[in-house]
């Protein structure tokens, strides 16, 4: 019996006449890096969209800590503990790196009156300042660890592709979560950045994070993942540890089709 944080059961989704996800079931074990691979159009990103609520589920269950989150709103799902990075950059382009990251901490910014007047009636202004200062400190530490402190006050639309990637991963990390989902984190980045991201992912795992990722780069995937799930035509065809997947004829067949 595995200790699964996320369990997908008989998930289905069709677009028009096309069955994008067809009776898909798998689990993500706590504290591991699980990779979702498969040829283009096999339904990986759709599965991600279904889990995070971006796309509506046709049928099936998505259990996060045994709670069915299918049919919930994306914001609710996020607040239940799923953090996600998209395939394309979805940073807030007109905001700075720091502002982007600041938005991820909590949902205090949604409280309009407190945000506007200060909430001195509940706690002194100094407490709020301290909270803000400590958030800034955390951001600085993260930026430091990635060696990108100099970008803190840049608008994110001016960043390079790779820099955007890093900031997005940071933003997803800061967003409180139990499960981190990354859609092709190293697609199109330089080899140095790829190694950097690999290091980050392994460090995160050492700290006990659970990560689900989609990745096309087989070398990268087989090196970082503990468990690999192979999808083809909307279904899971094989799953196993990287070494098994590497030599499985079904996987080769799926990619050659």
């Amino acid at each position: 019996m595995k200790n699964d944080i996320l369990k997908i059961e008989n998930l289905k989704k069709h677009f028009g006449g096309v069955l994008a996800v067809d009776d898909c079931s798998f689990g993500v074990e706590r504290g591991t890096i699980t990779a979702l691979i498969g040829p283009n159009g096999s339904g990986k990103t759709t599965v991600f969209n279904l889990i995070s609520g971006v796309t509506k589920v046709d049928s099936g269950k998505i259990l996060l800590n045994d709670l069915n989150i299918a049919h919930l709103q994306p914001s609710v799902i996020s607040n239940l503990g799923i953090s996600r990075v998209f395939q394309q950059s979805r940073l807030f382009g007109n905001l700075t790196v720091e502002e982007n990251l600041m938005l991820a901490f909590d949902n205090e910014d949604q409280k309009f009156w407190a945000s506007f007047l200060g909430d001195w009636w509940r706690k002194p202004a100094s407490a709020k300042d301290t909270a803000r200062q400590s958030k800034k400190q955390i951001i600085d530490e993260y930026l430091e660890s990635m060696h990108i402190t100099h970008m803190r006050d840049k608008q994110t639309r001016d960043l390079s592709f790779g820099q955007k990637r890093l900031v997005e991963i940071l933003r997803a990390l800061i967003n409180p979560h139990n499960l981190l989902m990354l859609d092709e984190p190293v697609a199109g980045v330089t080899p140095e950045l790829r190694d950097k991201i690999k290091k980050v992912l392994l460090e995160l795992k050492a700290k006990g994070e659970t990560i689900l990722l989609i990745e096309h780069d087989m070398n990268f995937t087989l090196k970082v993942a503990d468990w690999v799930i192979v999808m083809d035509a909307g279904q899971v065809i094989v799953e196993g540890i990287p070494d098994e997947i590497r030599h499985n004829p079904k996987v080769l067949e799926a990619y050659l089709d």
Partner: peptide, 20 residues
């Protein structure tokens, strides 16, 4: 709150994914 508004303007879906 104003930064949240700007986030919604720049990318509403990304803001939702952050739980907003």
């Amino acid at each position: 709150f104003g930064k949240l508004l700007e986030a919604v303007r720049d990318d509403e879906l990304a803001a939702k994914i952050l739980g907003k």
